[in-house]
Amino acid sequence: MSMKTEALQAAHGAEEQPLHHQFEELPQQNESYVVGMWVFLVTEIMFFGGMFLAYVLYRWRYSEAWFEAHTKLDIPLGTTNTVVLLTSSLTMALAVHFAQLRNKRLQLAMLGATIGLACVFLVIKAFEWSAKFQHGLVPGPNFTWEGLVPAPQAQLFYSLYFGMTGLHALHVIIGIVVIGVLALLTALDHPLVKNDFIPTELVGLYWHFVDIVGIFLFPLFYLIPK
C-alpha cells in the first residue's frame, strides 16, 4: 500500500483529482469506489457460484463419465490460455502501477498489452470451441458421443463447460471493452480519468477477478483426475 500513498502524495503535489459533488474529500471518494468494486466482485463470485455448485453436484454424481468426457479437451491449449491470462494480470497490475505514478505512456502501453493478451486468449478459446463444434460435442440435438459412458452425462459435462467458459469469455469480452474505453479516455485526457488512477485500479480489480475465475476453470475442466 505504500506505493499507493506515494502515488497519492505525488498526485497531490501535481494537479488535484476531480471530486464529485456527493463526496466531501478525495480519500472518501477513492475508498468508496474501491469498496464498491469489491462489493461488486462479491456479487460476481456468487454469480459464478451457482454454476460451480452445479459443477460439484454433477462431477460427484457422474465422476466416471466426466473423466471420460474431459479427455476430449485440449490440455496444451488450455495451459497456454491460462499462462496468457496470468500474464495479462501482470500487465494489468503494471498499468495500475504506472497510473499511480502518472506515467501515461507506460500505462497506455500496459493497457494495450492487456487487451492484446485478452484477444489472444479469446482467439485460442475460439479454436478450442470450433474443434468441439466439429466433433459434435456441443450440447443439444447434434450432440454425438461415441464413448462408453452415457451420452447425457457427457453432455452435462459439456453443458457446464460451455456455460462456464462461455460466461467467463463474456467477462473477458466485457473486460476488453472496458479496458479499451479506459485507454481511449486516458489517451484523450478525458476529465473522467485525468489525474485519477482510481478508474485504472477498479478496472484492474475486475480484470484480476476474471483471471482468478479462469484459473479455477482450468483445473476443474481440463485436469480431472481419474
Binding site: E64, A65, L148, V149, P150, Q153
Partner: peptide, 11 residues
C-alpha cells in the same frame, strides 16, 4: 431403475 435406463451410472 437407473441400472436399466442408464447402466453406466454405476457398474
Amino acid at each position: 431403475r437407473e441400472a436399466i435406463k442408464n447402466p453406466y451410472a454405476k457398474i
